[in-house]
Simulated assay, not measured.
Amino acid sequence: MPEAEVWLIDDEEQMLALLKQCLKHSPLHITEFDMPARAWDALLEGKPCDLILLDIMMPGEDGWTFLERLKTLEEPPAVIMLTALGDKEDVVRGLHSGADDYIIKPFEPSELTARVDAVLRRTSQRARPEGLSLSTKRHTASLHGNDLLLTQTEFELLRLLSGRPGQVFTRSQMLDHIDVPGHERYDRTIDTHIKNLREKLKTADPDTAWIETVWGIGYRWKEER
């Protein structure tokens, strides 16, 4: 099963560290944000995200407001609300506002991992295409059991595109996602990497064109039907 992209949003550094520690044995790729605005910018840049663990009480924009913003996205990630608020009305408000689950602090690590696993199973339609396996920790990928020998840039592009099948990414968005020196930041850089990635995917699966060109815009991962 490919790693899910899980984002932690909390203004308390200790809580971010605790959440990461609780989830360290799960097959997840975790990104931390100390404020919702930074996570929002990452979403607008096209960064893949399957699940957000969202604190409610934060200075500036709180979790409620950020949850409302998430609902404006065409395909918002799943959300688990994390808060010290134990009032039943807050639980109901969170669920009615679009959250997928609600965990009250303090919590047991086993409860957190169980709820994360449950939400990811329920939202498995956001998972990467069947047959494709990625490990961010080991930096490996395979398609239908065939290892893909990828460069770091090819791996990052594969992770970005396959994480959102059907979503079109511009070359600019892809350049922002990968580590490219300033003097190499031009559209042809992406085209070259995509060409090489396509050839490696074709070797593993000759019958499917996984990466589609959207003329005048960019590229997208083939949407399974």
Rank of each mutant, 00 (worst) to 15 (best):
residue 12 E to H: 10
residue 167 Q to E: 12
residue 28 L to I: 06
residue 6 V to H: 08
residue 66 F to I: 08
residue 43 L to D: 02
residue 91 V to M: 13
residue 134 L to R: 02
residue 177 H to F: 14
residue 168 V to Q: 07
residue 41 D to V: 09
residue 56 I to F: 04
residue 142 S to P: 01
residue 100 D to C: 15
residue 119 V to I: 12
residue 138 R to E: 15
residue 185 R to C: 00
residue 172 S to C: 01
residue 222 K to T: 10
residue 100 D to W: 08
residue 220 R to Q: 15
residue 34 D to L: 07
residue 67 L to F: 05
residue 167 Q to C: 09
residue 6 V to A: 10
residue 66 F to P: 01
residue 5 E to P: 00
residue 95 L to F: 06
residue 149 L to P: 00
residue 54 L to R: 08
residue 54 L to Q: 15
residue 159 R to A: 13
residue 127 A to G: 08
residue 97 S to N: 13
residue 15 M to V: 15
residue 135 S to D: 12
residue 114 A to S: 15
residue 99 A to R: 08
residue 23 L to Q: 06
residue 91 V to L: 13
residue 68 E to R: 14
residue 20 K to F: 01
residue 32 E to C: 13
residue 117 D to C: 05
residue 153 T to E: 02
residue 166 G to Q: 12
residue 3 E to V: 00
residue 215 W to N: 13
residue 178 I to T: 15
residue 83 T to L: 04
residue 183 H to S: 14
residue 138 R to H: 11
residue 173 Q to A: 14
residue 208 T to A: 04
residue 37 A to P: 03
residue 94 G to E: 06
residue 66 F to D: 03
residue 101 D to E: 13
residue 159 R to T: 08
residue 167 Q to R: 14
residue 180 V to R: 02
residue 85 L to S: 06
residue 31 T to F: 08
residue 9 I to S: 07
residue 214 V to I: 13
residue 89 E to T: 12
residue 20 K to P: 00
residue 179 D to V: 12
residue 109 P to Y: 07
residue 83 T to V: 07
residue 25 H to F: 04
residue 111 E to A: 13
residue 205 D to T: 03
residue 9 I to Q: 06
residue 182 G to H: 05
residue 18 L to N: 08
residue 135 S to F: 00
residue 102 Y to E: 10
residue 210 W to M: 05
residue 209 A to P: 09
residue 175 L to A: 08
residue 206 P to G: 04
residue 154 E to G: 02
residue 170 T to M: 03
residue 221 W to A: 04
residue 141 A to Q: 01
residue 137 K to N: 09
residue 197 L to T: 07
residue 175 L to Y: 03
residue 90 D to W: 08
residue 67 L to K: 05
residue 198 R to T: 01
residue 134 L to F: 06
residue 149 L to V: 12
residue 145 G to H: 05
residue 180 V to G: 06
residue 39 A to M: 11
residue 43 L to F: 13
residue 133 S to L: 13
residue 84 A to N: 08
residue 117 D to L: 04
residue 79 V to D: 06
residue 12 E to I: 11
residue 141 A to P: 01
residue 193 H to L: 01
residue 29 H to R: 14
residue 204 A to K: 01
residue 98 G to N: 02
residue 142 S to Q: 14
residue 34 D to Q: 14
residue 224 E to P: 04
residue 150 L to D: 10
residue 203 T to H: 10
residue 15 M to P: 00
residue 222 K to C: 07
residue 172 S to G: 07
residue 44 L to V: 03
residue 153 T to Q: 07
residue 141 A to G: 02
residue 167 Q to K: 14
residue 189 T to Y: 11
residue 6 V to F: 10
residue 87 D to R: 13
residue 86 G to P: 00
residue 223 E to L: 10
residue 180 V to C: 14
residue 188 R to Y: 09
residue 34 D to V: 11
residue 197 L to M: 09
residue 159 R to P: 02
residue 175 L to I: 04
residue 208 T to P: 09
residue 113 T to S: 14
residue 202 K to Q: 13
residue 42 A to N: 11
residue 64 W to I: 05
residue 39 A to G: 15
residue 80 I to E: 06
residue 200 K to M: 01
residue 62 D to W: 00
residue 76 P to C: 05
residue 131 G to D: 10
residue 77 P to T: 09
residue 186 Y to C: 07
residue 171 R to I: 06
residue 104 I to Y: 02
residue 144 H to P: 00
residue 168 V to D: 11
residue 213 T to H: 12
residue 215 W to I: 12
residue 91 V to A: 05
residue 71 K to W: 05
residue 63 G to R: 02
residue 79 V to C: 07
residue 82 L to R: 02
residue 26 S to T: 06
residue 199 E to Y: 04
residue 191 D to I: 05
residue 152 Q to W: 00
